Measured scan of single mutants.
Amino acid sequence: GSLMYASIFGNVSAIIQRLYSGTARYHTQMLRVREFIRFHQIPNPLRQRLEEYFQHAWSYTNGIDMNAVLKGFPECLQADICLHLNRSLLQHCKPFRGATKGCLRALAMKFKTTHAPPGDTLVHAGDLLTALYFISRGSIEILRGDVVVAILGKNDIFGEPLNLYARPGKSNGDVRALTYCDLHKIHRDDLLEVLDMYPEFSDHFWSSLEITFNLRDTNMIPGSPGSTELEGGFSRQRKRKLSFRRRTDKDTEQPGEVSALGPGRAGAGPSSRGRPGGPWGESPSSGPSSPESSEDEGPGRSSSPLRLVPFSSPRPPGEPPGGEPLMEDCEKSSDTCNPLSGAFSGVSNIFSFWGDSRGRQYQELPRCPAPTPSLLNIPLSSPGRRPRGDVESRLDALQRQLNRLETRLSADMATVLQLLQRQMTLVPPAYSAVTTPGPGPTSTSPLLPVSPLPTLTLDSLSQVSQFMACEELPPGAPELPQEGPTRRLSLPGQLGALTSQPLHRHGSDPGS
Rank of each mutant, 00 (worst) to 15 (best):
S283N: 12
M413W: 05
R360Y: 09
P291Y: 15
R307M: 10
L398H: 04
S345V: 10
D203G: 09
E160T: 02
S313M: 13
D146Y: 03
H204K: 11
P222T: 10
G159V: 02
L453P: 15
L380W: 07
D146A: 04
E331K: 12
Q494F: 15
S283A: 09
S443I: 11
P222I: 10
M327D: 14
L128H: 12
G323A: 11
G281N: 12
A430Q: 14
L215R: 02
A397S: 08
L132G: 02
G173M: 06
L426Y: 12
M424F: 07
P437V: 13
A433K: 07
M424W: 03
P222W: 06
L405G: 02
E229G: 09
S500H: 13
G346R: 11
P263C: 10
T455H: 14
S293E: 11
S243V: 12
I221G: 12
R404V: 05
L162E: 03
I135G: 01
V258I: 08
G153V: 06
R238P: 07
L402W: 04
P452L: 08
Q466M: 13
P428G: 08
P510N: 06
L242Y: 14
E328T: 12
C470M: 11
S500T: 10
R408G: 08
T442H: 13
L420K: 05
T248N: 11
S312T: 10
S462K: 14
L409H: 03
P305G: 05
A430L: 12
R144G: 02
L152F: 01
D182E: 07
S334I: 07
S208R: 10
R367H: 12
S341H: 13
G262M: 10
M220R: 12
S443L: 08
L129G: 02
Y362F: 15
W206N: 04
H187I: 04
I378P: 01
E253A: 10
Q254R: 12
S465H: 10
G159C: 01
K241T: 09
V434T: 09
S460N: 13
N214E: 02
P314T: 07
I378K: 15
D396H: 04
A343N: 08
V147G: 08
S243K: 05
P161S: 05
N349E: 10
T372V: 10
F344N: 10
S289K: 12
Q423V: 07
C181W: 01
G145R: 09
N403L: 11
E319G: 08
F213K: 01
P222Y: 08
L398P: 02
P452A: 10
F201I: 08
I211Q: 02
S272A: 10
D127F: 01
T248Q: 11
E231C: 13
K332C: 07
G159P: 01
D396K: 05
P321E: 10
P429I: 15
K154P: 10
A397M: 03
D509F: 05
G493M: 05
R247Q: 12
D396L: 07
R238Q: 13
R246A: 08
L195C: 08
R307Y: 10
S207K: 09
P454K: 12
E231Q: 12
I142F: 01
Y133E: 01
A177H: 01
L458S: 12
P339G: 07
R273C: 13
S243Q: 10
L453K: 06
P369C: 12
Q463F: 09
L458F: 12
P325R: 12
E472M: 11
S374M: 08
S208A: 13
E229A: 11
L495Q: 12
R176T: 06
S208K: 15
Q501P: 13
D190R: 02
L375N: 06
L473C: 11
S235H: 10
P284S: 08
G169P: 01
Y198H: 11
L461C: 15
E193G: 11
R216E: 02
L340W: 15
P168D: 01
G223D: 12
A343F: 04
P452K: 08
L419F: 06
L178S: 06
P371M: 10
P199I: 01
P199H: 05
C181L: 05
R238E: 12
F353I: 12
P299Y: 01
G232V: 10
S283Q: 05
D182T: 13
I140Y: 04
T212I: 03
R400L: 10
P379W: 01
S345I: 06
E479T: 12
S208P: 01
Y362M: 08
I378F: 10
G298N: 03
Q237M: 14
I221L: 11
R238M: 09
V347F: 04
P339V: 10
A433T: 08
Q361W: 03
P222S: 09
T435Q: 10
S460A: 10
E253P: 09
D356H: 14
L192P: 03
E319R: 08
L191K: 01
T212Y: 01
L162C: 10
V148R: 07
S290N: 12
L215E: 02
E229Y: 07
G145H: 06
V147C: 09
R176C: 06
S208M: 12
E141C: 07
L178W: 02
G476P: 10
S227V: 09
A430H: 13
D412L: 03
I211Y: 03
S393A: 13
P314G: 10
P291H: 13
E406G: 10
H184M: 05
P383H: 06
Q501H: 05
S202V: 11
E200W: 01
S285H: 07
P452D: 12
P449G: 10
P383Y: 15
G145M: 08
R188G: 03
P481D: 10
A497Y: 11
T372I: 09
T130D: 13
G507S: 08
E295S: 12
D189A: 08
S243E: 09
G233P: 11
V148L: 06
T218A: 12
L308Y: 10
Q254H: 06
T455C: 12
P452C: 08
L395C: 03
G264N: 08
F134R: 02
D203K: 08
S393V: 11
P439Y: 11
L491S: 09
N172I: 13
R247I: 10
M413R: 03
L191E: 01
L461S: 09
A260Q: 09
G511W: 01
G232A: 11
R394T: 09
L164T: 13
V347E: 11
D196M: 06
K241M: 10
G256Q: 06
F344M: 12
F201Y: 10
T442F: 06
S443D: 14
Y133F: 07
F213V: 07
V416H: 11
L380T: 09
G493R: 07
V427L: 07
I135D: 01
G287F: 05
G256V: 08
G346E: 08
G223R: 11
I350P: 09
P454N: 11
G262P: 08
K170D: 01
R245L: 13
R408P: 02
G355M: 08
I142T: 02
S333Q: 10
A268R: 09
S341G: 10
I378D: 06
E160Q: 03
R386W: 15
S410I: 08
E479A: 08
E257F: 12
Y165M: 06
L152R: 01
R315Y: 12
L192A: 08
H204V: 10
G511R: 14
S202R: 10
S293I: 13
S382A: 06
R394E: 04
F213L: 05
D509G: 08
N349F: 03
R360V: 09
S410H: 10
I211H: 01
G269R: 13
T372C: 10
H184N: 09
D196G: 10
P449F: 04
F353V: 07
P387H: 15
T425Q: 13
P279N: 12
F351Q: 13
P454D: 04
R176H: 03
Q466C: 12
P373Q: 08
R307L: 07
S271Q: 04
L365Q: 10
G145W: 01
F467N: 11
P441V: 11
L183H: 01
E471I: 08
G233Q: 09
T212K: 03
L128I: 07
E406S: 04
G262V: 11
S345F: 09
F351R: 07
F344E: 11
M327G: 09
D146S: 07
S207A: 10
H204S: 14
V434E: 13
L398E: 03
Q401F: 13
T444W: 06
R240H: 11
N403C: 11
P255A: 13
A177P: 03
T336Y: 09
R144N: 15
S443C: 09
E229L: 09
L503A: 10
I186T: 01
G440P: 13
V427Q: 14
A430K: 11
D196K: 13
P168L: 04
L461H: 14
R245D: 15
L340H: 12
G145L: 04
T248W: 07
N377L: 03
P429S: 07
G264Y: 13
P441E: 12
S352D: 05
A414C: 08
A177E: 03
P310I: 15
L215S: 01
